[in-house]
Every structure is written in structure tokens, then in C-alpha cells.
Amino acid sequence: MTADTDTRGQVALRHLSKAFMLNGQPLPVLRNLSLDIRAGESLAIVGPSGCGKTTLLRLLAGLEQADSGQVLIDGRPIRGVGTERAVIYQEPRLLPWLTVLENVAFGLEVRGIGRGAAQDRARHHIRLVGLADFEGAYPRQLSGGMAQRVGIARALTVQPEILLLDEPLGALDAMTKLTMQEELTRIWAEEGVTMILVTHDLEEAIFLADRVLVLSRDQGVGPRLIDVDLPRPRDRSQQDFVAMRRQLMAEFGLH
């Protein structure tokens, strides 16, 4: 099966299960999860800590292996990490001995692209995240928000079909977080990538996602999918947005 260009970035989860060993007892975190994610879709995964949302993202990234089941990308099962996926972590994970430009070019260089070509492409994405004046700066000279932008630029530079984000804004202050949510929306729209985002911030999930996957720690309650049927650009104070947030909070027994 070959994927044509319009459908590149499709993700299919087929009966995924994963358990961790805790004191010799298997602790299941994902049980028989199946889900189809459309190409170019923005999916948020929310849930309490320990519900397996980060584990799911790591399975998608190929950093961990499922006990059973498959992850298919564009119809093909994944084996480990792949060039069509890029991960953005909660911490920017920049190499402190490299400049912003070198950090952003790192992903391409690791994949065998020459330094000059890699840096040319890196410059484009550094401009995209608004850090053109900081190409020569070292990570320790950057604020938390700027460092995270560098991490985002590094992921975009390898031109992935799928961006995997593990609580990417979780460590930022409230103001920076709001700005970065807008930035992520813009980048997602411009790059046309599939975006899968783990977050514990329900408002962030509604602001960014087309659909929200709610995972639960409770064995009896299965995963639920919620459509975020709101027009873009989204307005956090708009009535429908607020209603959506109330609905999602009710999923967790919150008011």
C-alpha cells in the first residue's frame, strides 16, 4: 500500500497494549487501544498522571515497544524511531555546547545531511520561530520560552510528517505558554503536519486540537474521544470554548 502525498502523516493504532512491571506485578497502562489519526490532524491526549499518555507518545516515537499491537504510519508498521516523526519534549533538550543554529541543524546532520545544507535549512526554521537574531547564541543565554522555540525549530527542520509533543509547554510560565500556544497553532497550519500532543492542560488541548483523546487510570473506564468542533482561530473567552472546557473538565469530575 502506498500513501499519496495528501495522506502522508496518517497514524493508526491497532490493539496497542503496554504494561510496566511494578514490584514484580504487571501494571497495565494501555489496554487494547485502537485509534485512527488523520493526516494533518491535531490530536491532544489528556489524562491524569499515570494514565499512560506519555507512554503512548513514546510508543508512537518508537522510543518504546508495545507488548502487543501495532502502530502504523501511512499504512506501514513502525520499527523504532523513524525519519517521518520528530519529538518535542517538555525540556528543550538542547546540546549546551552548540549554538542555536548548530542545535537546530543537529537533527539533519545526524541524518547524514552536510553541515552547510543542514544549516541553510535550519536558518529557515529559526526565522519561523522568530529567533533569527539568536543564531549564534548558546542555550544558557536563552530564556525557557526561547529554548523551547529552538527545540521546536529543530524538530521542524527535519520536515517530519508527524510532530509528537510531550507536554511541550508544561515548564513555561503562564504568559509565555499562551504565546507559544498561538505559535504552535500557526506552525501546525503552515507546515501541514500531523500533530499529536500530550498535555495536562485541558484549555491547551481545546485551543490546539481537532480531537481530544481522554485516557483514564481507572481500568473500568475506557479511552474516550471528544471532537473539538470550534472554528479557528480560537478564542479562549468565547462562549463555545468555555462550554467545551466545562464539558472536558466534567470528564475528570472537575468544575
Partner: peptide, 12 residues
């Protein structure tokens, strides 16, 4: 370890 994992996720 997190930096090593980052590099590995890019296929290093």
C-alpha cells in the same frame, strides 16, 4: 540520558 534519547530520536 535525556540528551542521548533526543539524539536517538533523530536516528543517531
Amino acid at each position: 540520558r535525556k540528551l542521548i534519547e533526543m539524539a536517538e530520536s533523530y536516528g543517531a
